[in-house]
Design a protein around this nucleic acid. Sequence first.
DNA 1: CATGAATGAGTGTTCATTCAT
DNA 2: CATGAATGAACACTCATTCAT
Lengths: 218, 218, 218, 218
Amino acid sequence: MNIYSLNSEITEESVPVLLDRKERHRLLRKTDIIRAAEHVFALKGFHKATIQDIARQAQYATGTVYLYFADKDSLYFSIVEEKIKRLLHILKLKASQVRGTREKLESSIYESLRFFDKEHDFFRIFVREESCWSIKSKLAKSTTAQERKEFSIKLMKEAQAEKIIRRDLLPGQVSDMLEFIITTFIFNWWEEGTERKKDLKVMSGIIMDLFLNGVKQR
Amino acid sequence: MNIYSLNSEITEESVPVLLDRKERHRLLRKTDIIRAAEHVFALKGFHKATIQDIARQAQYATGTVYLYFADKDSLYFSIVEEKIKRLLHILKLKASQVRGTREKLESSIYESLRFFDKEHDFFRIFVREESCWSIKSKLAKSTTAQERKEFSIKLMKEAQAEKIIRRDLLPGQVSDMLEFIITTFIFNWWEEGTERKKDLKVMSGIIMDLFLNGVKQR
Amino acid sequence: MNIYSLNSEITEESVPVLLDRKERHRLLRKTDIIRAAEHVFALKGFHKATIQDIARQAQYATGTVYLYFADKDSLYFSIVEEKIKRLLHILKLKASQVRGTREKLESSIYESLRFFDKEHDFFRIFVREESCWSIKSKLAKSTTAQERKEFSIKLMKEAQAEKIIRRDLLPGQVSDMLEFIITTFIFNWWEEGTERKKDLKVMSGIIMDLFLNGVKQR
Amino acid sequence: MNIYSLNSEITEESVPVLLDRKERHRLLRKTDIIRAAEHVFALKGFHKATIQDIARQAQYATGTVYLYFADKDSLYFSIVEEKIKRLLHILKLKASQVRGTREKLESSIYESLRFFDKEHDFFRIFVREESCWSIKSKLAKSTTAQERKEFSIKLMKEAQAEKIIRRDLLPGQVSDMLEFIITTFIFNWWEEGTERKKDLKVMSGIIMDLFLNGVKQR
DNA sequence: CATGAATGAGTGTTCATTCAT
DNA sequence: CATGAATGAACACTCATTCAT
């Protein structure tokens, strides 16, 4: 299973021919369930969402869920992991399409904003709402999360090499900071329902600015 | 009940003489339970912690907990609220002891770091771990949380007035950003078990610097 | 303890001098509690009424109730028994004041109506609302209930001897029937809030008529 | 679901073919549980009976009960309502098979006696034992109970029209009285374990006689 | 005696998980 | 494979009862 295989634009046809019919079938079911689960989790939160809710939403029987996911935790975990995978995929793709570290940073910020904006539900589930501690720590150790972190750290190191970013900071820390600034903006963006139509481009410009220059008046 | 009365350093003697024996007794029990609950919540998270766990930890019977707290939510809520109260109290106190907005900002950052460092368990519960949505929204409306936010916003406005902080940003957003940066640092501090003995003073200096000047190499 | 001793008109003075101070004191407490319990049971029903409710209502501590009553059942039992005792006392007294079996019957009906009318709460507790099976069967075997039944049966036997009532019926059954007719009337009387001010005298006349002549049109 | 479908004589075969396999299966389970509940409620009363008791008696797991009944109240309610439905069905059926109001009255009395005699457990639960106030008031408003009362009242009105019953009495009251007389008889019948083999026919004759002619010696 | 804080067994209900069909 | 009925452990909360003060 690769990044493409869980892409939500998957349709019967688009599934890579590499997988045999059985595998393809299996994948479709899984995607159905994940999609339903995402919806239900976002609506009710992890603990109040029941497997029955999810199954009903996906129009399968309760037991069917367990043919594809070991347990509730796994299902939740899968959602999060898949999202991160997709975000990472996008970030990598877009980064590969621009030259210059600064441009890569800008792309990263913009695409992250775009992604979370589209994936409102996911953001609510994972970033802001309740989840389950055991899952979070499990996730932190997952390959995908690691990969994502590595991608970001690599970018930071590049920026440090090019003297865009101070060298006395740990790349990991800088990377986290950027993540948190983005998160803060998105969160506020939703809370203040008003003038929220400030363009994503503009938003990402502000973030870039803040990230690089801080909040100091010049 | 004031900020002092739930102070975790409370001992038989330190309890203000203002309270009669009964009230004092009650307060001690409450503190016992809160302390136990803090521990259990931090260990297991809100949902997996049971009232029986907490009662056992506090060496009381299950029902005793309900003599002091209406329900599980209330108990959790009490813990969080009390902590915020205490942090706010410290922040205000320390801020009143320095002159200058910049110094107040520095004090805020340093004291927050110090507080969260001492309250490791609490930090884990509230800032990073799961909690319950209903509680969070209840909390957001609580006077204490409001006060805390107001305090922070006031500081940001002052900083904007004194041209320390850019005026084109909403004070609320800036305040959130600072909070997130602090959070990030503490979190990373714990995760990376190594060289974590970097002094709190140094840490808060770095944060102040980052907050004001961003990550741009100069 | 005799019939008088639990009479609700008891005041410190009216308590028979036969009892020593301690006993008198004890009796007053018991009466306080019974009175409170009656109120609370009537308000909430047996199961939803708590000992704490009752204690609070009586303005005693929870534990105090247990100095006078072995347990909740006993307390409930005491109330019912005391009421029956008082009704029986009244019936006997009034019956002794009239001549003739028919008059005694009339007196019985009238006084029962009067009693239940005054003791609305009690009626609700015992006759119509929930109670506890175990208590009811315990009560059925109590001396007081037995006495009351005997009194009624004696009256029925007299009526049979005087050919006022058919001799082919068991006195116990006839006695029950009368009781149920009275019950039915009282119940309906309360339900149909309207013209309920039909005089007790008139009511008891109708019941007497129905009891003796049945519902047959003549 | 009609009167037949919950009939306690249901067997795999007797279930109307109208229902598909699933529905039939469901009905059987429901009947199992109702039967068990009836037994346990009659044995312990509403409050002391636990869902676990009932489930164990029915040889199902605790949770299974909740697949068929929303809660304890509903289960209890279902039992009572079903019984009333069945009694009403019988009364109507039998009443339709005789001519004359007097005969209908006789039939009503006899069939009620027969029904309560067979449904000893139920009678104990509902008519004489504790239940729950909330359920009782819920029941009083139920269509079934209304229907039953209407049926009885209609009969009384007919009897009044035919001058079998005095016209100066409210039909509702007369109907209640008859109900109470029947109740009294059944209750006594069980209590006095002795010569209780007095035939049901004879019993209902006596009741009819008492109801119409009262207890007056002629 | 009076108190009322403490107790802890008990219960209705939920829901993740299993498994016979 | 799919189903969804059945399972039963788990848990928050209550309250009759006790007992140290």
